[in-house]
Amino acid sequence: MKHENIILFVIVLIILIVPLALYSGLGEEQGYFGGSDDQGADGVSETGYKPWFSSIWEPPSGEIESLLFAVQAAIGAIIIGYFFGYWRGSVKEEE
């Protein structure tokens, strides 16, 4: 049992260390951590597309934008959780 724990610990260390070694301090400017959102926006801008409207309000910083996104996700999760709970409760009540 003790050898299994040591082997699992070594595997976890390898899983943690390898990505950090591959990262080597390079950032987004060097092409690391670029997502599909960036690639999609670049692809659309290459076509010469001009937006036909602009946002009514833009958050003052990326942190506030992330906060609003998280709040929106939480509200959606609460609503979905309520309906799943309601559905499960009505099924149990019928039994």
Rank of each mutant, 00 (worst) to 15 (best):
Y86F: 11
A70F: 03
W52R: 01
G25T: 07
S55G: 02
W57A: 13
G76L: 14
F69D: 13
I7L: 15
S55P: 01
Q30Y: 04
Y49P: 00
Y86C: 03
D42Y: 06
I14S: 10
V44K: 10
A70E: 09
G85H: 03
E65R: 08
L13I: 12
S24A: 14
S45Q: 14
L22S: 08
E95H: 02
I75C: 01
D42W: 12
I78L: 14
F84L: 15
P59W: 07
Y49V: 06
E93I: 01
S55K: 05
L20D: 04
A70S: 05
F69E: 14
V12L: 15
Q30N: 06
I75F: 08
I7N: 04
P59V: 06
Q39V: 10
E4L: 14
A74P: 00
V91E: 12
F83Q: 06
I78N: 04
E63F: 02
L13G: 13
R88N: 05
K50I: 15
G43C: 09
W57C: 11
K50R: 10
E58Q: 13
I78F: 14
N5K: 08
Q30F: 06
I79M: 07
W57F: 15
I7C: 11
L16F: 10
L16R: 00
V71F: 10
Y82E: 11
V91C: 01
W52M: 04
K50H: 06
E4G: 11
F53Q: 01
E93A: 15
N5V: 04
G25M: 06
F53G: 00
S24H: 10
S55Q: 10
V71A: 14
E63N: 02
Y32K: 14
S61I: 01
G40W: 12
G62C: 05
S90L: 12
L20H: 03
E4P: 00
V10C: 12
W52G: 00
P60S: 11
A74S: 14
Q39S: 11
F9K: 10
E63R: 01
L22D: 08
L26H: 08
D38C: 01
A70I: 06
F84V: 15
G76I: 08
E28F: 09
G31L: 12
E58I: 09
S66R: 05
I75K: 05
E93Q: 05
P51N: 00
L20S: 07
A73L: 12
G27Q: 09
E4A: 08
G85R: 02
Q30W: 03
Y49C: 07
D38W: 12
G81P: 03
I15K: 07
R88H: 02
A41S: 12
F9W: 09
H3D: 14
E28W: 10
E93V: 02
D42Q: 12
V44S: 03
W87F: 11
R88E: 10
K50D: 07
I11V: 15
I7Q: 08
S24L: 14
I6P: 02
V91H: 01
E29P: 01
H3N: 13
L20E: 11
Y23F: 14
I6D: 11
V44R: 03
I56L: 15
I11W: 06
E63Y: 02
